[in-house]
Design a protein around this nucleic acid. Structure first.
Length: 345
DNA sequence: AAATCGACCAACCGCATGGCT
DNA sequence: GAGCCATGCGGTTGGTCGATT
């Protein structure tokens, strides 16, 4: 490899491993007086028995005066998730949007916290899309629990009386979890859902509707605009899962539903400008970070959402999914889609 | 009390890249 | 253009510490 100078401290007698307070002091003193200059020359000049690379790392990741330490805030967390969705593992690029945070710190935080958090939510941390492996089906209890937990947090933060909202929120959380599950199921199926699958997904009302559509010779018995709307709203749902503005929007719709005599969250969709609700919406996020790395070089985390496109998510599902879905109904879905998947693979 | 496990994170390693001669 | 050097970057490792068995 051209250009690389080994920093093999074992062979040249230089020290490795954790830095001592004394070494830190020497390094800080030197840089404060002379700047770091050539990192390679620095250790000798400063009187440190370390390689230049080690000094640079220690300075940039730990000793720099503008380093911000401590827990990541919710805002920082969301920013990292948003940026990672667009940039992938470009830790230095992500760090450039978080003043005082180092790429190393963000990388560690991602690997130890955020990755697991997304996995728990059923989102693939690499692609930022819902997980398409069948294991996700085994995570439904956690998904429901997470949804409930999230809603409970919202209640606590807004001092909303539990007795008047608990049942509604349980219902909404379950609804969210169901939507997530349906999304994953369709991802697993991969292609246009079969008639049988759509029958099960849409519930009794759709089955009735299908009979009418079939008599009109429409493909799959599904009105084309419904399929388009369905697909669009999956995209919107997915986008909302890792975009703070959209999450906030969904939180707000939930709050609205509480304040408006338990109306379904879609009631607040009127807050979103209708002029920006196309029938078919573009994907809000790249399918994979790699795909869009070049155009996202100077990405602004605040530009990564399009809240206006979320307004019909609940409405569409309200149209498609009956509220009275029973356990056996959902068992049927899972069994149905599982058998579909086996036949695909 | 000791052993084990898992989370966390500082530090290291090796590759990529850009600048200079 | 080739070779060399310095630095940046991302993946990985290994030590530490608290929780659990």
């Amino acid at each position: 490899m051209m250009g690389r100078l080994p920093c093999n401290n074992d062979e040249n007698g230089l020290k490795k491993g954790p830095w001592t307070p004394e070494e830190d002091r020497v390094l800080i003193d030197y840089i404060q007086r002379h700047g770091h200059g050539s990192w390679r020359a620095l250790p000798k000049l400063a009187g440190l028995n370390r390689c230049g690379k080690s000094c640079r790392l220690r300075w940039t990741n730990y000793l720099r005066p503008d380093i911000k330490r401590g827990r990541f805030s919710e805002e920082e967390e969301q920013t990292i998730i948003n940026l990672h969705a667009g940039l992938g593992n470009k830790w230095s690029a992500i760090a450039s949007h978080l003043p005082g945070r180092t790429d190393n710190e963000i990388k560690n935080f991602w690997n130890t916290h955020l990755k697991k958090k997304l996995l728990r939510m059923g989102i693939d941390p690499v692609s930022h899309r819902p997980r398409t492996d069948l294991n996700i089906l085994a995570n439904l209890p956690q998904l429901l629990a997470a949804a409930n937990f999230s809603n409970m947090n919202m209640i606590m933060m807004n001092n909303i009386p539990l007795d008047s909202t608990a049942l509604l929120l349980q219902s909404d959380a379950a609804q969210l979890a169901k939507i997530q599950l349906l999304h994953n199921i369709i991802q697993v199926l991969g292609t246009t859902p079969t008639m049988e699958a759509m029958n099960f997904l849409a519930g009794p009302s759709f089955r009735e509707n299908h009979q009418l559509q079939r008599s009109n010779n429409l493909p799959f018995g599904f009105a084309p605009h419904k399929l388009t709307q369905l697909r669009s709203n999956f995209v919107n749902l997915e986008a909302s899962q890792h975009q703070p503005e959209l999450s906030e929007y969904h939180n707000q719709t939930l709050k609205d539903s509480i304040n408006n005599n338990h109306q379904f969250p879609s009631s607040s969709a009127a807050n979103i400008p209708t002029s920006t609700q196309p029938t078919e919406l573009p994907a809000l996020l790249p399918a994979s970070p790699e795909r869009n790395q070049t155009e996202n070089k100077n990405i602004n985390p605040n530009d990564m959402s399009n809240p206006s496109s979320t307004s019909t998510t609940f409405e569409a599902w309200g149209d498609l999914v009956d509220d009275e879905a029973s356990d056996s109904y959902w068992r049927d879905i899972i069994e149905q889609t599982s058998s579909q998947t086996w036949s695909i693979s």
